[in-house]
Design a protein around this nucleic acid. Structure first.
Lengths: 338, 338
DNA sequence: GCAATGATTGGTAACGTTACCAACCGAAAG
DNA sequence: CTTTCGGTTGGTAACGTTACCAATCATTGC
């Protein structure tokens, strides 16, 4: 009836023997059955079912020219829902093309990224999608990757001219800051992160542009650009609100900083502490933002779409339908007022 | 200097030729270099660097007994931050054991799950970790999986006796409901989801147990158990609060239902609608729960830890250190009062 | 009835790697 | 000076699959 508990995987040869045909006939049947007699196909399928046979995809992709069907994906922080959605978008498009993803988490560590990339290549991935860390990029140079196409997401890498999907960081930050200025704020604090230099830098540039354009002073003492997690963001917000001349509004460059800032603002309200109740503009959406005790304007974007676009770019490259040079896609962001 | 742009991956044979040794010496060097003269090792490493050679892991694992180094992971919804954290936990432990994860999203579709599992096995995964969908489980029977160990997470599958990691759903729901009863509530609504039968069922049981024990009536007209997403949850909460005799508190069995309920409650408060402002107990944490306009008690748990435990169970099985029978680990939950 | 055609089937080799065995080397021991 | 031994190196085969070619079979047209 069936193999015993814990038996090793049967081979195509065993299936062939049981079905009374050659391995070639089994292979052909499983490949679609062109030019195989229907009765033989039935016998093969019966043997496959009985033995619980699965084609060995690794052996299959050993033959030259055969794709492995794997896409390597390395992201910086899977715990961040933003990247979970990103991975989902990549997975969806990969599945539509009959591929699976191998997923690695770099934790912003360039060494880990390097290690992941070489493992992925060793597993013969058909392509790579990467949210790069900000370290050295020698391991991503085309000559190191051989014929494996690479798509970068969220961030660009200096000196690396490859397909990239980005958000409109500058424009979004600009428009978000303008909305605060329009509401009459002129003293606007900035919370952001440093290490993911690329987005942090771009979002700061948008903020700076808007402030400068409207003649609002940029005061370094209410600019904090070194917070990676919620607790650090909370502390930075606390310091900012304890400033002798505190800001009346805060621009937060990402999800982690927004949550931290709101936690601190909420604490002050709950404890009845005096001081400003700053309006907040948040780059990155979060759930229930409409229920916050201060008005929160959200600069929203679609991480899942970003993942889908990255994968689409990759498959265009794989199928040869991509343009010759490196393409950059910059996805729009939307601003939702409270 | 280096291979040309877009060249195919070099083989071990080419490295051997360049280094002036046999492929065996290259293989041995890369495997750790036991019994290989240091000068030859240096020559090999130089050739590897020059050609940009990566060991072909697929060919490597073709030999019998060699592990592929891959763990197949299928989860139901990667967009849910809960599962993103779960995947991260699995990935961390897998990385500690030198393995990568292949990730697939089932979207609660049993057909997709079946397809993913057979692809994973075809890729010779060393093990499987699954958040099962609630369909038929024939494809998960041991005799179908051959020698590939399986660990289930979050949910159990009827008729499948394998290693499993669960949350203390019943106990958590019980204690959460008791906390509402202790606060004087007796009319408590229930929001939950049906299709992920297992957790939904268990959490309802905990609710039921607490209600019955305290003699609080269980009224089916304020029990809604069919919401999978935030919008459906919102609608269910609206109907519940429009009930002629609305509940004074709501037990929400998961994150999606909690967000939906709070969105509806917030809307009513903002619009100044009359009616109760129900207290909420939420199974699943969410950020900024302390800033909600009604008190929210959170039944919290660690999805990442759940992932780590699942992977730990799997590696115990792989390394033969696991017990003979199927193990079930039930992780505790914590209750955080507002 | 016979040749030509196309459909069907099987054998062989190769993909890139490593386990196993055989061969060789130099050095130490007798 | 020979033997022995451990360290070092290379050749061969096999892992499971499929492309390619050769062989076989039935069918059609003359």
């Amino acid at each position: 009836m069936s193999t015993s508990r814990g038996a090793r995987q049967p081979t195509i040869k065993e299936v062939a023997t049981l079905a009374g045909v050659s391995p070639m006939t089994v292979s052909r049947t499983l490949a679609g059955g062109v030019n195989v007699r229907p009765d033989l196909q039935r016998r093969v399928m019966a043997a496959v079912a009985e033995l619980g046979y699965y084609r060995n995809e690794n052996a299959r992709s050993l033959r030259p020219g055969q794709p492995s069907g794997l896409i390597g994906v390395a992201i910086t922080n899977l715990a961040n829902p933003y990247y979970g959605n990103f991975a989902l978008g990549v997975e969806e498009v990969a599945a539509e093309h009959g591929r699976r993803i191998i997923l690695g988490n770099t934790g912003e560590d360039p060494g880990r990224e390097r290690q992941l990339v070489s493992d992925f290549i060793g597993r013969q991935v058909d392509g790579l999608i990467l949210v790069p860390t900000s370290g050295d990029a020698a391991h991503l140079q085309q000559e190191r990757l051989g014929d494996v196409p690479l798509v970068l997401a969220s961030r660009r890498v200096p000196g690396l001219d490859v397909d990239t999907v980005l958000l409109d960081d500058v424009g979004g930050a600009y428009r978000g800051t303008v909305s605060l200025l329009d509401a009459g704020h002129t003293r606007i604090g900035f919370l952001g992160n440093r290490s993911s230099v690329f987005t942090g830098e771009r979002r700061f540039r948008g903020y700076e542009q808007a402030m400068t354009e409207r003649g609002a002073p940029i005061d370094p003492s209410i600019i904090a650009r070194d917070q990676q997690d919620v607790d650090a963001a909370s502390r930075a917000a606390r310091a900012m609100l304890d400033h002798p001349e505190p800001p009346t509004a805060i621009f937060s460059a990402n999800n982690r900083n927004t949550i931290g800032a709101l936690r601190e603002i909420g604490r002050r309200i709950r404890d009845g502490l005096p001081g400003p109740r700053p309006a907040v503009v948040s780059f990155d959406d979060f759930e229930l933002s409409e229920l916050m005790p201060v008005p929160v304007t959200v600069i929203d974007h679609d991480a899942r779409l970003l993942g889908r676009e990255a994968a689409t770019l990759l498959f265009a490259r794989l199928e040869g339908t991509a343009e010759a040079g490196a393409t950059t896609v910059e996805l729009p962001v939307t601003i939702a007022h409270p």
